[in-house]
Amino acid sequence: NQASVVANQLIPINVALTLVMMRSEVVTPVGIPAEDIPRLVSMQVNRAVPLGTTLMPDMVKGYA
């Protein structure tokens, strides 16, 4: 099963993503693939993302 990107903490809106904010985990439904974590660094989410939430492509500005 493919690992997805999961919030490692509350990720506020309009804050640049850092490695420490994200972890990889096998979850259902599948979200952004874990291998895209380096690409996500410095991008921003378009809504607050609670701890443990799977990041979906539509949550990250400029990802999709």
Rank of each mutant, 00 (worst) to 15 (best):
25 E>A: 15
22 M>P: 00
11 I>D: 00
7 A>R: 02
31 G>N: 00
41 V>Q: 06
44 Q>G: 05
43 M>G: 04
2 Q>N: 11
46 N>A: 15
34 A>P: 06
46 N>F: 10
62 G>E: 13
42 S>P: 00
39 R>P: 02
9 Q>N: 07
29 P>M: 04
32 I>R: 01
46 N>S: 14
58 D>T: 08
17 L>V: 04
11 I>M: 05
1 N>C: 07
4 S>L: 01
46 N>V: 12
27 V>R: 15
56 M>R: 11
33 P>C: 05
50 P>K: 10
20 V>P: 15
8 N>F: 04
14 N>Q: 08
5 V>Q: 02
26 V>A: 09
12 P>Y: 04
16 A>G: 13
24 S>A: 14
48 A>W: 15
57 P>Y: 07
23 R>P: 02
6 V>M: 04
29 P>E: 07
50 P>A: 15
4 S>D: 01
47 R>M: 15
44 Q>L: 10
40 L>W: 03
46 N>I: 12
25 E>C: 05
23 R>G: 07
40 L>C: 04
36 D>R: 07
59 M>K: 00
39 R>W: 07
49 V>H: 02
42 S>I: 03
19 L>A: 12
48 A>C: 07
3 A>C: 06
2 Q>V: 13
20 V>C: 06
59 M>G: 03
33 P>W: 07
37 I>M: 15
35 E>Q: 15
30 V>F: 13
50 P>G: 07
31 G>H: 01
5 V>C: 06
35 E>T: 15
35 E>G: 14
44 Q>V: 15
13 I>A: 11
9 Q>L: 11
28 T>K: 13
32 I>T: 03
64 A>V: 15
41 V>A: 05
18 T>C: 05
55 L>A: 01
59 M>D: 14
43 M>P: 00
27 V>N: 03
27 V>D: 01
2 Q>R: 14
13 I>F: 11
26 V>E: 10
17 L>C: 02
18 T>P: 00
59 M>H: 07
23 R>D: 06
50 P>H: 09
38 P>M: 10
32 I>M: 03
19 L>Q: 12
5 V>E: 00
31 G>W: 02
33 P>G: 06
62 G>L: 09
19 L>I: 10
17 L>Q: 00
5 V>R: 00
43 M>Y: 10
38 P>E: 11
42 S>Q: 11
19 L>D: 07
16 A>N: 10
30 V>S: 10
42 S>L: 07
52 G>E: 04
52 G>Q: 04
28 T>F: 14
29 P>R: 04
1 N>H: 15
61 K>Q: 13
22 M>R: 00
40 L>H: 00
24 S>T: 15
27 V>Y: 03
34 A>E: 07
63 Y>M: 06
27 V>M: 08
6 V>C: 04
64 A>Y: 08
17 L>G: 00
44 Q>I: 10
18 T>I: 06
58 D>A: 10
60 V>C: 03
43 M>H: 11
9 Q>P: 00
16 A>S: 13
24 S>F: 06
37 I>T: 09
45 V>G: 00
47 R>P: 03
23 R>Q: 05
25 E>G: 12
37 I>P: 01
31 G>D: 01
25 E>W: 06
15 V>D: 07
29 P>L: 04
52 G>D: 09
30 V>I: 12
57 P>D: 06
4 S>F: 02
9 Q>D: 10
46 N>K: 12
19 L>K: 11
46 N>P: 02
48 A>R: 10
47 R>D: 06
50 P>Y: 08
10 L>H: 14
2 Q>C: 06
41 V>P: 02
12 P>E: 14
49 V>Y: 02
4 S>K: 01
32 I>L: 05
9 Q>K: 12
22 M>I: 09
37 I>W: 03
35 E>R: 11
24 S>Q: 12
55 L>D: 02
25 E>I: 08
60 V>A: 01
56 M>C: 05
51 L>G: 11
3 A>F: 09
6 V>S: 02
13 I>Y: 13
15 V>R: 11
8 N>K: 10
63 Y>P: 04
5 V>M: 01
62 G>C: 07
56 M>Y: 12
33 P>A: 07
35 E>H: 12
27 V>P: 00
7 A>F: 02
50 P>Q: 09
41 V>N: 03
51 L>A: 15
16 A>Y: 12
15 V>M: 15
28 T>Q: 12
62 G>S: 08
58 D>C: 06
14 N>S: 08
47 R>E: 09
5 V>W: 02
8 N>I: 05
58 D>Y: 11
45 V>P: 03
21 M>W: 03
5 V>A: 09
54 T>S: 04
27 V>F: 02
64 A>S: 13
26 V>N: 13
54 T>Y: 03
45 V>M: 10
43 M>N: 05
36 D>Y: 12
21 M>S: 04
34 A>H: 07
4 S>P: 01
9 Q>V: 09
5 V>H: 02
52 G>P: 01
50 P>I: 05
39 R>C: 06
21 M>Y: 05
37 I>Y: 02
59 M>T: 05
51 L>H: 10
19 L>H: 10
16 A>R: 11
51 L>C: 06
1 N>P: 14
38 P>D: 10
38 P>Y: 13
23 R>C: 05
1 N>A: 14
6 V>P: 01
21 M>E: 00
53 T>C: 07
22 M>C: 03
58 D>F: 14
5 V>S: 03
2 Q>D: 10
16 A>F: 08
11 I>N: 00
24 S>W: 06
2 Q>S: 11
4 S>A: 02
16 A>C: 07
